Simulated assay, not measured.
Amino acid sequence: MGDEFIRLDEVEKVFDVRRKTGFMRRERREVRAVDSLSFSVRRGEMVGYIGPNGAGKSTTIKMLTGILTPSGGRVRVAGIDPSRERARLAQRMGVVFGQRTTLWWDLPLIDSYRLMRRMYRIEERRYEENLARCVELLELGDLLDAPVRQLSLGQRMRGDIAAALLHDPEVLYLDEPTIGLDVVSKVKVRGFLRDLNAEHGTTVLLTTHDLTDIEQLCRRVMVIDHGKLMYDGELEGLHATGGAAAERTLVVDLERELPPLDVEFARVVKVEGARQWLAFPAGQSAAPLVARIAERYPMVDLSVREPDIEAVIARMYARDTSVAP
């Protein structure tokens, strides 16, 4: 994991946008989707790349894959300029866009995989081994003969992840890979990605709005907003940077309606019948809090909700503004 696999130096991406301002009149303006962005990712690293909608995450990935050409700066993946040698780099990368599929809409899932085998010129034995592994771990056996258009969003996402891995890519770009998945499927996909990274050393760049994905998979997280890198480090550090906004929520279902619970290190933020919402610091384990509640109150069920990343980012901005001269 010591060598640098992905590197961006002062990368910019500017789009020309034209809008109608009157009869026969249009206004042209520039939109800077990515602004002086610099970071590097080591080979075999799994990194979370997060931020609100429109922050520049997908634009970054499209430049890393060669779909878009940077307006300025330098991009290298495995020493290759993606925009100049996209076909060469395609053999070494896999991409999953949560809102767009790489599968053929009207073909059975298995036919999409067969076509990809030919496109990537995958040796038959390697293809069969990789397909069998993906089918088993992502539970695709009953879906192989179904046309892609008949699959649910969650099923299609699992199908897209398998498609991205058939040729053993060195780097995998995942844009919202657990979107549309139920809780059980999310756990399986996360386990699959964790094993892939551990066993094959696949470099993974993961964008998601689900902080649980990041928490379960990534030791390092980068936050981007308005095209700028706002944070690069461990998730715990992000919570600390976010300050008060970085709180998790414990949702407790009690046997009966009770006054707001009184427990250390947490505050009740909402009560609705027998259900209560308690906020506690994101960097704190939920286990001691759950134990105290179970000892003192008649608890039926509970769940933990992660802090909203957009609230954390907003708090980061507020803090920056408050210390500005």
Rank of each mutant, 00 (worst) to 15 (best):
G22W: 06
G51A: 08
R26H: 13
D16M: 14
R32G: 03
A33D: 02
F15A: 09
T21R: 15
G56S: 04
R28K: 15
F23S: 09
R26E: 14
M24R: 15
R32Q: 07
I50N: 07
K13T: 02
R25L: 08
K13W: 01
S40C: 13
G56N: 02
S40K: 13
A33F: 00
R42A: 12
G51L: 01
F23Y: 15
V31G: 00
D35A: 02
G48D: 11
G48N: 08
R43M: 09
F23E: 01
E30I: 07
E30L: 14
P52R: 06
E27K: 14
R42L: 10
G56Y: 10
V17M: 10
A55K: 07
A55G: 05
G56V: 06
A33S: 11
S40E: 13
R19Y: 15
V34E: 01
F15Q: 07
E30G: 10
R19A: 11
T21S: 14
K13M: 09
R18G: 01
F15W: 08
L37I: 09
R28C: 05
A33P: 06
G51I: 05
I50E: 04
F23L: 15
N53T: 12
R32Y: 08
V41H: 04
A55W: 02
R29C: 02
V31A: 11
R19V: 14
V41Q: 10
E45W: 07
E27P: 05
G56W: 00
F39M: 11
R25N: 13
I50K: 01
Y49R: 09
I50G: 10
S40N: 12
R43G: 06
R28D: 13
M46V: 15
K13F: 03
F39W: 04
K20D: 12
E27D: 14
A55E: 04
A33Q: 03
G44S: 09
D35P: 06
G56K: 02
G56Q: 02
R32S: 07
L37D: 10
V34W: 10
V14A: 04
M46S: 11
D35G: 04
P52K: 12
G51F: 00
V47Q: 02
L37A: 01
E27F: 04
V41M: 03
E30A: 13
R29P: 07
E45F: 07
G22E: 00
G48E: 09
R28P: 08
E45G: 05
G44Y: 07
L37G: 05
V34T: 00
S40Y: 11
D16F: 07
K13G: 04
